[in-house]
Structure formats: C-alpha cells, structure tokens
Design a protein around this nucleic acid. Sequence first.
DNA 1: GCTAAGTGGACGGACAGTATCCGTTTCATC
DNA 2: GATGAAACGGATACTGTCCGTCCACTTAGC
Lengths: 242, 242
Amino acid sequence: MDIVNPLCYRVTAITVSGQSSQGQDQEAERPLRADAERNRQRILDAARELFAERGLGVTLNDIAHHAGVGVGTVYRRFPDKKQLIDSLFEQRLEDLVGLMNAAIADPDPWQGLSRFLEGALELQAADRGLRELITGMPDGLERISKLRGRLLPLGTELVRRAQATGQLRADIEPQDVPVIQLMLATIIDAARDVQPELWRRFLAITLRGLAARPDEQPVLEPGPLAPEDVDRVMSALKLGRR
Amino acid sequence: MDIVNPLCYRVTAITVSGQSSQGQDQEAERPLRADAERNRQRILDAARELFAERGLGVTLNDIAHHAGVGVGTVYRRFPDKKQLIDSLFEQRLEDLVGLMNAAIADPDPWQGLSRFLEGALELQAADRGLRELITGMPDGLERISKLRGRLLPLGTELVRRAQATGQLRADIEPQDVPVIQLMLATIIDAARDVQPELWRRFLAITLRGLAARPDEQPVLEPGPLAPEDVDRVMSALKLGRR
DNA sequence: GCTAAGTGGACGGACAGTATCCGTTTCATC
DNA sequence: GATGAAACGGATACTGTCCGTCCACTTAGC
C-alpha cells in the first residue's frame, strides 16, 4: 500500500495543477508525456459527457471505457472521483453565479427573477450531473457549499428588488428560491425521456403563483403531457433503492 | 432448492389468504399456530411502521429485526417482498380513490381540487412508502398501475368541473395533476426532517398559479424555511447513487 | 411427553462499485 | 535504433449490501 506512495504523490500534484487549469495544460510540475496528456483530455471529455447525460452515478470504469482507455489510466490521473467532479464542474457553477448577477442587473427585477429560474433550470436540464450537484450531494464537495454561500446574498438582493417594484408577492423569502428549483428540477428528471421541456410549463404556473398581481395568464408552453405518458413520467424516478 | 417446494407451497397459500384478508386471519387453508399468527401480525405491524418512516427501501432483515423475530420467520411467511407491500398498501391506495371521490362530490369544485391535492399529499407526507409507491416504482406492482387507471377518469371529472365554474384556468389538463403531486412530493421528502409541513407553502403557491383569477393572496402557511436549513433540505435527497 | 410446527440467525451467493497490481507497450532522448 | 522511464490496460482483489436458505433448536397443543 505504501509502496505506491511516491507515485501517488506525483499524480496528486499533477491533478491539482489540472484542477486549477481550465484550458492551459503544461507549466508547473513536470509536464505530462504527449500520449498521457492526450488521454487525460479524453478522460475529461468522456467524464463531462457521461456525467451530463447519466448523472454522477457513472463509475470511473464507465468513464474509462467511454474514453477508450483502461481503468488504471483513469485512476492514475484522478485518484479520487470527487476531485474529477470538482474540477469538471467548477465552470458550470460559475455560470450559475453569472446567471444570478445578470438577473440582478436586469432593469425589470421580475423579469430578472424569471430569467434566473429559467436559466438555472435550463443548465440543469442540459446536464444531469450538474443537477445532482445542485440538489443532492451532502458530503465532501466543498465547492458546492461555498457556492451556496455566495448565491444566497445575491438571491436575497434579487428577491428584494422584485418585491420593491411590487411584482413579487411580499411574503416570499429568498430561501424559497432554491426550493422552487428543487421541485421543478424533479420534473426535469422525471420527464427527461418523455417530454424534456415539460418543466417550463410548471415553471410558468409557479411564477404565476409567485406574482403579486398575476392578472394575465401567460401561455403554458409546452402543452400538457400526453395522457399515455403520465405513467412513464411518474415511474421514472428511482427513489429508495427498491 | 426443490426440496423445499412442499413448504413453499403451503406458505404461498397462506400468504395469499393473508393478502385478501384485511382484518380477519383464520379461515381457508389450515390456521396458523397461535405463536405463528402472533408473529405474523408483528411482522405486518413492523413492516407498516418501517415502510412509513423509511420508505420501501427497508430490507426484510430490517423488518424482522424490528418485529423482534428472525429473518427466517419473515421469509417463511412472506416469500416475496412485493406481496408484503402489495397487501400492506391495498387500503392506503383505496384511501386515495376515496379522497378523489370526495373531491368530486364537493359542491365547490375548486375547493374539491385543492382538498384533493392537500389530502393526497398529506397521505404521502405521513407515509414515505406510499409516496414511493405513487411516484416511483415501475416494475411489478400491478395494483398501482390499475389504481392510476381508475384515478385518471376521476381526475378528469375533477378538473373539468373546476374549469366549468371558471375557477381553474382553462389550459390545465388532467394529466397535470399527477405532475403537480410529483413536484410537491419532492419537497415532502427533502424537507421531512427539517420542516415537515413546508410542502403546504408551495402547494398554496402552485394553487394560486393554477387559479383562473387569483386575486387574493392566501396566507402562505407555514412560513419559509429558516435560512440555515436550506442546505440541509437541498442535500437531503439521494438521487443517483453517488 | 411427544411431535409437528415454528423459530432464529449464521451463512452462502449474487451483484455492484472501487481501487490496485503488474506484465506489456509506447514515448522521448541520446 | 537502443534504452529506460513513463504510461497503459484490464484482470483481479476487495468492500459492502442485500437476498434468501438451511438446519439445529424451541415450543404449542394434542
């Protein structure tokens, strides 16, 4: 076990460098051999793709296979799945913050709020891993906790401004925003294979419920689920194991 | 394997009788010995309790332990977990249909709809197993599919009536009702340990979004999540395995 | 008392995911 | 084009979880 320590050491160092790099590769620590670097990139790509379409549950074996390399190669490069996830989703999470800032900057605070929710859910609809990262994961994953910490004050700002213009009902609190995301994200997951856009319909309904004076009825887009699809949506979620 | 067949045979027969019985026990097939019957009842009680509080994921081992009997005893009585679930939840599911009928009978169709959603979610809040049964389980479980079949026409009636009085917006379809349950049930699960009633707040918001003319703002009860609880709620759900 | 019915829980098998080890291949350098 | 360090791959061991069985022992009821 301890025999491999020296190896682990180097590897860890490289991983850390890879972690802080978003695009550049060499520099600091000895550079990887050309083939190694190529494989590292393949692994990252495969991981991104698989996490996005199947969620964080994919195994490193899956990723290795999909990248066309052996499992050993993956484990040499990323000793820990968490580190892989962490470095992979750094950008994605930044996007969320950006979205929030854009929302606050919107001259129409209500529109800002709506667009934020829509955008955040679009990100989650496009990337199942991101969705699980945002609503799920308790343990480890420092990055997520920190993100939430940064997001909350911004969210407060967003909510307060929408209330100040009398567009958002006054009894809504910033804490309600993540819960709304949570419930709509469920629809994303459940309807993914049947009607991927269905969540927008319920976002519209929810927004109307949040509005201080919901006089007009916005068009509900998309239309309702086809009756024969209801069962599939309702049973799409695997909750408790069995 | 085949040595035990005679035994299995008897056991199966008894289980089937237990299945069709909701309260009565003896009659048909040879009656169980007194201690066996006592244990059978204990197992049923333990199962009900554990399913309700921990969901369908509990193992027969858990149930045995909680009932104070050995695993073997459980397996002799209930060769199949599905059968146990099926017989245990028969009544619960009937309750749902009853709720729906009561809703349709309500002279105020809007109130009927609201009360149905509230009642259905209350049932799910009180019984995690039921919740998983309603939103989840694809395989096996004939009973659930049949139930949905029975519920849909009733739901259609409910929706149409509420639209006829101009209380429910016209672009809502009956298929939307289970989806709404699904998204709110998520809040039940996520907030269970922190704020068990939180779902009511979002039910109120949703109902307002569904109303044709949501002029008044109903009180949002309960209040919002405490800011420090947001993280716990968001990470309460175990989605993909890891 | 006697015996068939019932019991408990150690145990073996299945499965899934993680991580390692080491014989073989490839790269980069001389 | 020879050489050794770096990288590779995937069989394999390990871990953990759950299911269901088996059988030596206990107990109810005649």
